[in-house]
């Protein structure tokens, strides 16, 4: 029997991913570290402020984790919520677990705690990078109903690796926000296929915005997490420069594309509309050599020929 990651609560996800009986929570619900800002707004405050942090093991390796509960305020980050994640990450710098696991499901900053939420997201970003600089891989999993957006969309890309499911969505401004500000002609948030072609798991995988795509099951996420733990951490200037090159190529190649389909066509997919119908294995097989990073690899000889021109010059 496969368990859907998408349908699960944060607690069910973490329980499903960790080795049996290895779950240990820091500041659990009984500690009642609730948001101090919601009562004034007549809003109920969850016992754990919508995030579970702690330690456990996966395939025998110690991991620290944070799991956001999308069901509570869309997983949005408030003061306490953010500080729990920061505390866990800073502890990882001190204690060196084999990896940090971030199960993200969030719209970003909790508007009810606007300023505190924004600062908290910034602190999370810096703490993620501190953990990586200390040699601890930070692995993000995205596959919940609310996707991963706002400042946490930025934070997720500060991590070492992102695992996403086809149902997962990753971006900065949500479709509704853009539609509200720019109008429905710019971005129709109710056009689910369009949203999927813009921020959906398969598009992100092809673009190189995530490392692994998995079917929506706890087992598949778990396998991918183990692989990412084994990959270790590569926090280096060289890696950053490679990323810079990829991102520069992306703007050049796809900057004038109007739709995800145009990008996919550019990547060599003769029938972009078939992508949506492929199951995960079929898609990964077909995507061999048809991801943006593969194009870059194919061009790498050309790159070297550019000689002394440093890859980061604009």
């Amino acid at each position: 029997m496969t368990h859907s990651y998408y349908e699960s609560s944060a607690r069910a996800r973490i329980a499903g991913l960790l080795d049996a009986d290895s779950f240990h929570e820091w500041l659990p619900a009984a500690d009642r570290l609730t948001s101090p800002h919601l009562a004034a707004l007549e809003q109920s405050a969850a016992f754990d402020d919508g995030v579970i942090v702690g330690r456990g093991s996966i395939a025998g390796k110690q991991v620290f984790f944070a799991a956001q509960e999308g069901g509570f305020m869309g997983g949005a980050v408030g003061e306490v919520h953010g500080a729990k994640i920061v505390g866990m990450l800073e502890r990882a710098v001190r204690d060196h677990p084999a990896a940090v696991l971030l199960l993200l499901e969030t719209g970003g900053v909790r508007l009810q705690e606007a300023n505190a939420g924004l600062i908290a997201v910034s602190e999370v970003m810096r703490a993620i990078l501190s953990a990586r600089a200390a040699g601890v891989p930070v692995i993000v999993a995205i596959g919940g109903q609310y996707g991963c957006f706002g400042g946490m969309g930025i934070a997720s890309r500060c991590a070492s690796a992102i695992i996403i499911s086809e149902e997962g969505r990753l971006g900065l401004s949500g479709p509704e926000v853009i539609e509200t500000v720019r109008g429905v002609e710019e971005y129709d948030s109710r056009d689910r296929a369009l949203v999927w072609r813009t921020v959906g798991g398969k598009h992100r995988y092809l673009l190189g915005e995530c490392d692994t795509i998995v079917p929506d099951s706890m087992e598949a996420f778990q396998r991918a997490i183990i692989a990412c733990i084994n990959n270790g951490e590569d926090w280096s200037l060289e890696a950053l420069e490679r990323e810079h090159q990829l991102l520069g190529d992306r703007v050049q190649r796809f900057g004038s594309c109007k739709d995800g389909r145009d990008i996919w066509r550019e990547l060599g997919w003769a029938d972009p509309d078939a992508i949506a119908m492929m199951d995960n294995d079929e898609f990964i097989a077909a995507a061999q050599g048809r991801r943006a990073k593969d194009l870059e690899c194919a061009d790498s000889s050309a790159l070297e020929k550019r000689g002394d021109k440093s890859p980061h010059s604009i």
């Binding site: 970003m125 810096r126 990078l129 600089a133 969309g153 930025i154 934070a155 997720s156 890309r157 500060c158 990753l170 971006g171 900065l172 401004s173 479709p175 926000v177 853009i178 500000v181 720019r182 710019e186 971005y187 072609r197 813009t198 921020v199 598009h203 992100r204 673009l207 915005e209 200037l237 950053l240 990323e243 810079h244 991102l247 992306r250 703007v251 796809f254 900057g255 594309c257 109007k258 739709d259 995800g260 990008i263």
Partner: peptide, 26 residues
Amino acid sequence: GQRLRHRDEMLGLNGYMAHLAKCVEM
């Protein structure tokens, strides 16, 4: 703020922002 455009979202603006943050951290 961040550019509120379908096109920038499609290209992965969050990834570009994160890249900038990582460069600053480096």
